[in-house]
Simulated scan of single mutants.
Amino acid sequence: MKPLIAITLTLIFGGAMLTMTTSSIEPSINNAKGTHHSDKGGYINTAADFTEETAILPLLMRYATEKRVDAEPEQMQPIIELTSKQLMELPSDQDMVIRLGHSSIFMQLDGKKWLIDPVFSERASPFSFIGPKRFHPTPISLKDLPEIDGVLISHDHYDHLDKATIKHLASTSTQFIVPLGVDKHLLRWGVAANKVQSLDWWESFNLGSTKITAMPTQHFSGRGIFDKNETLWASYVIESQQNKIYFSGDSGYFAGFKEIGDRFGPFTLTMVETGAYDADWPTIHMTPEQSLQAHIDLRGETMMPIHNGTFDLAFHSWYEPLERIVKLANDTDVKLATPMMGQGLTLKNNQLNTSQLSTTEYWWRTETQREMALAL
C-alpha cells in the first residue's frame, strides 16, 4: 500500500491520473461545429460521448485497497545504450526512429535530429523525491545527446513535458514546436521566444524539409490543480522527404483518427499510445483494442505502441499493454514494432525495415518467460 501522500501526488501530478476536478471551462456555444476553443478561455474536447473524469476519493480508495500485480518490473529491463557518436553517424539518407522510454522518441529525419516528448528526469513529477519513478535508465543521458534540431511536445503533463530536460535544451539552438499555450512554460524556463513555435490543430510548421502538422487528440492538460485545460493537447503528422509518421500523444479513442487517416494517410509508422488505460478514465486513454483500431483508422503500415514500459501510471501490470497489443496484432495481421528502449527502426522510401520488427523478442518478459514463449 502506498502512503496516502504519495497516492495523492501521483493522482495530481502523474499526468495519466490527473482526473480529480471537473473542468471549470464551459463548452463553447459553437461546440456542435467542432471547435475546441472555449469562449471562456482554454480548450475543450468536442466528441459527443466525451465525459469528464471526477471522483478523486474513489480513486484514492482504489489505490489504498486494490491489490496491484506486477506494477513494476522485478528485474532490470534490457535496453540498448546509445552514444552521441552513434547518433551523429546515422546514415543521412535514411530516417530513423528510436524509442527512449514511455513516449520519449529520438528521430533522425532528412538528416536532422529530433526529440518527441523528451523526459530524461528520474520521475514524472514536479518533485525529485516522490511521484512516478522510471523503471529503467534512458538509453543515452541528457548531457550526451548530440545537437538536437527540433523538439515536439504533445501536451504539458509531467510524463511528456519535463522541466529539467527543456531547461537543458534551452541553451542550445533547438527549435521547439508545441500546442497553443504550452509555449508559456518554455518561455518561463528560459527558451528564447524565437525558438518556440506554437500550433493550433491543423496548423503546420516546416523545419528544413520536414513538415510538422499539429492534429486533434482527445485528452486534457494541466500541471497543477488550478490550470486544467488552459493549454492545448495535440498529436502530430510528421512528413519527411521519404516518410509519413504519426505520433498520437495521449488520447482516448475518437473519430479524429479516421479523419486524420483519410486526409494524411497512409503512414509508414504510427506511434500510438498503448498504456495507462482504466475503466475510470475511458475517454482520455485507450485500451490496447482501441489503440489498434486507431492505427487501422490512421491507415498505418506498422504500429509502434508507446506510453508504456517506463512509469507506473495506472492499475494494470506494467507489461500488460505490450502483451495485449502483441496478441491483438497477431490475431489481426497488423504489423507491430516493439523495439527495446534504444533500439532503432529504419525507415526509407515509405518502408520500414521489416527485419527490425521485434514482436517475437518479448523484451519485457523475463528470460525464462521468453524461452517458454519461443518453445510454444
Rank of each mutant, 00 (worst) to 15 (best):
F106A: 08
G131I: 08
G101S: 04
E147H: 14
D156L: 09
K113A: 12
L152F: 05
F127E: 09
A124C: 10
S128D: 11
K163T: 00
I140W: 10
Y158W: 15
G150H: 01
I148N: 07
E147R: 14
Y158G: 00
I166M: 12
E122P: 00
P137T: 12
V151Y: 08
T165G: 03
S141M: 05
T165A: 00
H102M: 09
G150F: 07
T138Y: 07
D144W: 04
A164H: 06
G150I: 09
I153W: 01
S125E: 01
L142T: 12
L115T: 10
H160D: 11
Y158C: 02
V119E: 06
P146T: 06
I116P: 00
R123G: 07
V151E: 04
F129Y: 13
I105G: 09
L145Y: 09
G131H: 08
S121M: 04
P126K: 11
P118S: 05
P146W: 11
G131R: 01
P126R: 05
P118W: 05
I148S: 05
I166E: 03
A164V: 13
P118F: 08
T165F: 02
T138C: 14
V119Y: 08
A124F: 00
H136Y: 11
V119Q: 03
K112V: 08
S103T: 13
L115M: 06
K112L: 14
H136G: 03
I148H: 08
I148P: 04
I166D: 09
S128T: 12
D149V: 09
H157W: 11
D159N: 15
F135R: 07
P118G: 01
S154G: 03
F120D: 01
I116Y: 00
H155G: 14
K113L: 14
P118H: 00
S154P: 01
G101M: 06
F106G: 07
H136T: 13
G101P: 03
I153S: 04
E147L: 15
I105Y: 08
F127A: 03
D110P: 02
P146R: 03
H136K: 14
S121K: 06
T138E: 12
Q108G: 02
S104C: 13
L115K: 07
L109R: 00
S125A: 01
G131Y: 00
P132T: 04
T138K: 15
D117G: 02
F127D: 01
S103N: 14
A124S: 10
I116H: 06
S104A: 13
V119M: 05
I166W: 05
S104G: 09
H136M: 14
D110L: 09
P118V: 07
Q108D: 00
D149E: 08
A164W: 04
I105W: 11
F135H: 12
L115G: 05
S121E: 06
I148W: 01
D110T: 02
T138A: 15
E147G: 11
Q108F: 04
T138R: 15
L161W: 02
D162Y: 08
F120T: 00
E122F: 00
R123K: 08
R134A: 12
I105T: 13
S121H: 07
D159W: 00
D159K: 03
D117Y: 02
F106H: 12
F127N: 07
P139C: 13
